[in-house]
């Protein structure tokens, strides 16, 4: 199980990086379009401002998973 946690950690880490890139690209495409409305600006600025820190958290979660921080004996929640 510890090995699985580590391998999945790598997937979360890479997935987070990919997600951050896609989100930023999508926001840039929408907001630089001539048909962008005020609502689009508010929506995408809020989405990017909120989701980038969350994605950084997800990348960090993946990093901790990869380093074995959630392995047996390292979690306070284990019984």
């Amino acid at each position: 199980m510890n090995a699985l946690r580590k391998y999945l950690g790598i997937i979360w880490l890479l997935g987070g990086i990919l997600l951050a890139a896609v989100l930023t690209y999508k926001a840039a495409i929408t907001l630089t379009s001539t048909s962008a409305t005020t609502e689009d600006y508010v929506f995408w600025i809020v989405i990017v401002a909120i989701f980038i820190p969350i994605i950084i958290g997800f990348i960090l979660f993946g990093f901790y998973g990869m380093k074995g921080e959630y392995g047996s004996g390292k979690l306070k929640v284990e019984s």
């Binding site: 199980m1 946690r5 999945l8 047996s72 979690l75 306070k76 929640v77 284990e78 019984s79």
Partner: peptide, 15 residues
């Protein structure tokens, strides 16, 4: 669900 299954262990009442 995947993260919960893989990373959270059993009951959580110790802290």
């Amino acid at each position: 669900l995947i993260i919960g299954l893989v990373y959270i262990n059993k009951t959580t009442d110790q802290t």
